[in-house]
Design a protein around this nucleic acid. Structure first.
Lengths: 341, 341
DNA sequence: GTCATTTATGGTAGCGCTATCATTAATTCT
DNA sequence: AGAATTAATGATAGCGCTACCATAAATGAC
């Protein structure tokens, strides 16, 4: 009994073979046109493109990926989507990928290396052209896959370490250090630090350590610290400033791990009748647009998130193969003087 | 001359066939274990899982997608990543997809239907399980693909229209109307509207039209409008409020199309010594966290972005086939009274 | 025990494209 | 003109998995 018509195939959907037939060429010639690869005569190309348009042919990327053991997907693992920082990075990535065949597949790790590992493994099932993730710290298993995989790797945000392939970002330790130096130079002496738990946020910890190092060099110490166990938010920043000032009312500046919380600090000042800068310095991190739009622009460190994402993706697109040399790209940061510290 | 060893295949990477061989079963039995599909004895399953662990097998999703004419990718087209609104939606989508095999592929349309169409076509090459996009307005070509494709479709944010498959969101026209009613009820009579160009933002336009309808019913009209041709931002909101008050100093409330701009309006008030609410009402849209963390919480409409994303993804996961009936899910919105209007 | 149904497992063609080798045609060099 | 090189095109096996049909084993009903 002969087998029924194979239900695998939907006859309404044109394949490359249909295109080739209509254009009067072989499959592989049509493929060459679609891929813009290999020698192809202009007249032949035109016939194939005409057939593609007539049939409304859409390539089957899974087939191409299977046949070539590679895909046009870029796996992007982001620590968070809860504030604008990583959406900005993603926007940079997306901008660089526009007009290319590459498409970002997204996962959110919640700053958890184990979640990162799990998502990475599920992404590898698609044989991505590249993996983009944040930071230089991964589980041993994840690192093994990153190191032995046949795909490019970009580790973003941090450059203080040994990347697998490419690292694009800034030195967070240096940024924290420069924050301390900057504030000491401006005359601040009684420092406080208010932020979320930094157990899982390597970069916030590095900035904190840089800040402490700068203070130590100036013969100073952090007089008070206040920590919030949950995730970062503006409301948390408001509450933290209120709490730390209750413990140490004589602080003259408070450093926050990010602008969201620093803005919360500003809102507390407004609520409590504290004049930013004149009575209490408030310093953030990231240099968000919204912080700069305040009547008193927030004093902060500008992290170049969009540039980091865009630069990383562009660098990855330069070559499908990993070069022998690892690359570290320092996008730097700016000190935004602002008006709050 | 026989052909050289096929370079297609990397012998270091275990395939399903390797798993099957090690477990002493056929390929299709191993596949059944991986897919959790079809009858499988527990002892057999354990043998296969053990082989998978030993080999570190990672499935080749492209192969599965090709063989089954379907994939585990979800195409997500977002209008923007420039503010937190759509990252919140994406966060909801991602949350619903966690622990499933589905992964979101991201494209950003910049509120341009032609870009949306282009991105959609490139995503269809991956035969996504579903397409998630914003709004109910698409190019004719895009709509044709959405209607005839063998994948689920969720149109988010707006429910005032005829969806392809599922719509999840709120009535923006009703939200604008209720904004007007709410403010009229609070005693406001001299209305201004300050926002970005709404040519490409259907939902902002619908809210504007709803607002105008409510004012008309109350025998009122918008006394002044100010438009900014660029994209929405807090700084733009500051400038717009300054400009509209120069033209119409006697306004008693100004409605903004989103919280980002409304917060800019608040910042202008702070700068210009205007007391929000008492002297001038300021009303936004979206109910962002940061707006609620201000000393005077922003008066606004709360759009349930995370819920919209999560609900849509969950609904899509219920069935791979499109049901006969289209579904409209109204997540509603809340009026946040706040303290600025 | 026999027959019918359900459970479990297996064989393989094919999904749509591309890596690779092969052939033919056109161009360039001597 | 002939040889060498380059450009253009073609044939097909195979990528890794699964839809579908087939067979065998186990279980339940009479």
């Amino acid at each position: 009994m002969p087998r029924k018509r194979n239900a695998h195939r939907n006859p309404d959907i044109p394949t490359l073979a249909d295109v080739a037939r209509l254009a009067g060429v072989s499959d592989i010639t049509a493929s060459r046109v679609v891929r813009s690869e290999g020698p192809i005569a202009e007249a032949t190309r035109a016939r194939v493109l005409s057939a593609i348009a007539e049939l409304g042919y859409i390539p089957n990327r899974a087939a191409g990926s299977l046949a070539s053991s590679a895909s046009t997907l870029m796996s992007v693992l982001l620590p968070s989507l809860s504030n604008i920082v990583f959406p900005d990075v993603l926007r940079g990535i997306h901008t660089a990928l526009t007009e290319t065949a590459f498409q970002p597949v997204i996962g959110v790790t919640d700053y958890d290396p184990l979640i990162e590992e799990r998502i990475l493994l599920s992404f590898l099932a698609w044989q991505p052209a590249a993996v983009i993730l944040a930071g230089l710290h991964h589980t041993p298993n994840a690192r093994r896959h990153l190191e032995h995989g046949r795909f490019r790797v970009a580790e973003l945000m941090d450059i203080d370490g040994d990347p697998v392939d490419i690292a694009v970002g800034m030195s967070h330790r240096q940024a924290g250090y420069d924050t301390g130096k900057h504030l000491v130079t401006r005359g601040y002496r009684r420092f406080g630090y208010a932020g979320h738990s930094i157990v899982s946020d390597d970069r916030a910890r590095a900035r904190y350590e840089g800040l402490c190092a700068a203070l130590q060099e100036a013969g100073l110490v952090l007089i008070a610290e206040e920590r919030f166990p949950g995730s970062s938010s503006t409301m948390a920043g408001r509450n933290l400033l209120e709490a730390i000032l209750r413990k140490a009312p004589d602080l003259d500046v408070v450093v926050f791990p990010n602008d969201d919380m620093a803005m919360g600090g500003i809102f507390h000042c407004q609520h409590a009748g504290i004049t930013p800068k004149a009575q209490l310095g408030i310093f953030g991190f990231n240099g968000l647009d919204i912080g700069q739009a305040m009547p008193l622009p927030l004093s902060s460190i500008l992290s170049k998130r969009f540039l980091i994402g865009k630069t990383a993706a562009e660098k990855l697109l330069e070559s499908r193969e990993r070069p022998a040399e690892k690359t570290i790209i320092n996008t730097g940061y700016d000190i935004i003087e602002g008006a709050t510290a």
